[in-house]
Simulated assay, not measured.
Amino acid sequence: MTTVHGLEPLELPARLTAPPRLTQRHPWLLPAAMAAHRARRRTQWVRDAWSGRVAWAKRHEDRDLPVRLKQHGSLLLRELDPDQMHLQHNKVTNLRLAASRMDGLVIAPGETFSFNRVVGNCTRRKGYVDGMKLSNGEAEAGVGGGICQLANLVHWMVLHSPLTVVERSEHSFDPFPDTGRVLPWGVGCSIVYNYVDLVVRNDTDHPFQLRTWLGERYLHGQMRTDVRPEHSWRVEARGEQFLRREGQVYRRNQIWRRVVDRRTGDQVGDELVKSNCALVVYEPGPDVEVIDLD
């Protein structure tokens, strides 16, 4: 660990310091490894169903629950490398299919939501096409690529609700500059069917409903419920830093959630959601301060 200029020590997550995985050294093993991961997750789902330990949310309701708790729109197309724009346009096709599977889902009290169980496996047979996927910090073509944007949207809305995040995997890399960024860096999700998932549980006495649809320029989402909660939530990034060590740039921050009493406007809680640290795979622009730790 290194401390400089009064900064907290930079301690890299194990996933960034571990030796290359076997599948990274021998990529031909990746399909078998993925099949094993998927089999374990399917076994877990079957075990949960037989035991009754988990009640999975699967009911959809066309009629809106009366209270709109959170709404957000996510830009569909970003200006990236012109050679990759066809993957951006294909992503829109994939998001339209995935959002239609998500739209109207009700998470009743005691139920658990799984992104992978609701959206399912994104295959060509279902109409999914090659979109942009991230693998080891690089953008590449893959069937169903881009649906992480829907998971990001859902996670952002969940953070503005009393629902409990049970499982969420973030990206190990910061792949793109912040051009046009609206949400804080570090609130996104990584999705790989079926073992890298976004899982959320409803520990309240009220149902919550997800509405998701595509407009001309944005992926839209709403979180709805039947009674407005007594609290509201404000999510923000703190301690944003770019640090260079041994020739590599890392980005880190913390995501915090302030809990506010709706009636008085007073802050009644301050929750650390996640500490993030990722390898930056682009060269930060001149307007980004990079602190050298060497």
Rank of each mutant, 00 (worst) to 15 (best):
K58Y: 12
G6P: 13
R201I: 00
S190E: 12
H89C: 03
V106H: 13
Q84E: 06
V196A: 08
D174A: 12
L272R: 04
L105S: 07
L97T: 06
R78S: 03
L198Y: 06
V46F: 10
V192H: 08
L22M: 13
D48K: 01
G285L: 11
S190G: 10
P27V: 12
F242T: 09
H26C: 09
R263H: 08
E167A: 15
P82L: 11
V158E: 01
E236G: 02
L105D: 09
W50V: 14
E111D: 10
N136Q: 13
G120P: 04
A33W: 09
Q44S: 11
A14P: 00
L214Y: 09
Y282L: 14
L153M: 06
V259W: 08
A99L: 07
R201Y: 01
I107S: 13
R124W: 02
R101L: 05
G269N: 01
D81H: 09
V290F: 10
L279T: 11
D64L: 14
Q241H: 15
Q149M: 03
W156K: 02
L198Q: 08
V200W: 05
S161V: 06
P207M: 00
P207W: 00
C277I: 10
F176S: 10
A39G: 04
L77P: 00
A14D: 14
L243H: 09
Q88V: 04
V158S: 01
H155L: 02
G180I: 14
H37F: 00
M34I: 10
L76S: 00
H86G: 05
Q44A: 15
A33Q: 05
G120F: 07
Q84N: 02
F113M: 10
L80G: 07
G110R: 05
H206C: 06
W213N: 08
G180R: 12
T93N: 14
L77C: 02
V259K: 06
E283H: 14
R252G: 00
R228G: 00
L80A: 00
G215P: 02
G239Y: 08
I255K: 03
G110T: 07
Q44G: 10
K133C: 04
L243I: 15
F208L: 08
E79R: 05
P31V: 05
E167T: 15
Q71C: 01
M85V: 05
S190K: 10
G52H: 03
L7H: 15
A98W: 05
Q44F: 04
G137V: 13
K58E: 15
Y218I: 08
F242A: 10
H231W: 04
